[in-house]
Design a protein around this nucleic acid. Sequence first.
RNA 1: UCCGCGGUAGCUCAGUGGUAGAGCAAUCGACUGUUAAUCGAUCGGUCGUAGGUUCGAAUCCUACCCGCGGAGCCA
Length: 503
Amino acid sequence: MTTNIQTAVNQLAEHVGQVVTLRGWVYKMRSSGKIAFIILRDGTGLCQCVFEKNEQTESIFGDVKKLGQESAVEVTGEVNKEERSVGGYELKATQVKIVHGTQDYPITPKPHGIDFLMKHRHLWFRSQRQWHILRIRATVVDQIRRYYNDNGYVLIDTPIFAPAAGEGAQTLFKVDYFGDPVYLAQTGQLYVESACMAHGKVYCFGPTFRAEKSKTRRHLTEFWMVEPEIAYASLSEVIDVAEDFICSIVKRVLHDHRDDLVELGRSLEDVEAITKPFVRLTYSEAAELLRGPKAKELLENDLKQKTSRIADLEKEIVELEETAKGGGKQWQKDKAAAQAIDSREELAELQEQVTNIPHHMRLAAEFEWGSDLGGSDETIISRLHDRPTFVTHYPKGCKAFYMREDRGDERVVENFDLLAPQGFGEIIGGSAREEDLDRLLARIEEEKLPLEDYEWYVDLRRYGSVPHGGFGLGVERTVAWICGLKHIRETIPFPRMMGKVYP
RNA sequence: UCCGCGGUAGCUCAGUGGUAGAGCAAUCGACUGUUAAUCGAUCGGUCGUAGGUUCGAAUCCUACCCGCGGAGCCA
């Protein structure tokens, strides 16, 4: 008697013709009178297991047919190459061990609403799409660490309990710390600045917390951020690092996850186009661009395209509704009804966008030097370029106190944002830091910040102060961008958003 | 915080004042190559909550709760 080989779905190619055992869960189940198909999910991939009813399987066949979705099973059988099967291989099953039979698994292979899925997040990430996304996230996180570790940076873990309210107190989570108020960290930057004076090149990487009352597709209250900080670096050197870093992440994901990206419906071509050099614009140039003919043309074309799409959709919906109500097979009617729902959703979204476009056009056309770039402005700029775009040198007034004043133009600071292309928006914010003691003190006073909270930080300008700079990259926004996802909530295992902490 | 849309079966949704509906899921049965299988049957309801109008309310009115999308702010 031969011993069965214990293996995993992604190893099946090496076992063609052999009898193996797979351990996993029932992803989907179909059966006829004398044949049953289990799509088995084992964490490494999907494999179709075929049960034919014969002398060998007679005793278990009835039980197999009754397996509910997500039942835990161990299946033994011979591995065959099979075109018709997901992944190209299938198991001709002869034995099955039911580890845990399951009934009434809530997430069926039919469509579900986002609220329902979010409430079942603990189960939802068993679904294929979520599985692809979280695998890519894991690689992005690994590449972040690898990039800095391989390039001479020292990891500095910064605290999560932060004493200072200071900057943006209304977006801080307040925590009771033995009777005194402290705040969950929004950034490790000030700490990492002090560490870079000890180690030269450092980075911190961990969760950060923002109590922003924003419910949008780009916001979480708990998200992961990596923040490198480099001593003696100028603004342009920091930007070079950011550019090289992003390219390394993109390259790694393209290398390790082509299949996952394709399954997610992401255009590989678009991802492959993310190469050096990125576009670099100053804030003033961006402002010109917004007020200029290109932005106007972009939005006018948008308006035209969306308006004609709306007309098409309206026609389509009428046709679908007729199909759904008319004769024909039930499943055809269902399909039409489901498509009509999708189309109506798209229609509603487009109609809202169309009503917003004139407003965006006005915002762009009337953009005034000195105000911060709004969401729609960022979208316009990033859509005018097919590569990521750095926007630098913002007006001092709309940026943080620690950013270095441009010595040639004191109205602006030496900062930059990186806007991901195709309208994904900001994924990095960074700057050169003010190294001059007097200028820093003046800025703290201007912003009316409590100096006593920042004494330790100001100390860095008293003892061997040098030019330095760094940036923060949001992991979830980066994953959403690379995967081509509309919403950030799927890029983190358990999203925390305003009004949402379960499960 | 503001604006828009929504809440009907476990899920996705129809239902504009007159008996509470469909598909899927679940349960039972048929079917040896299925890919959201198919076919037949069964089961399934506090119509978000509270009040009001009416002979009669899922449907109209008021308030509140929850969700989604957008704005502001941000990575």
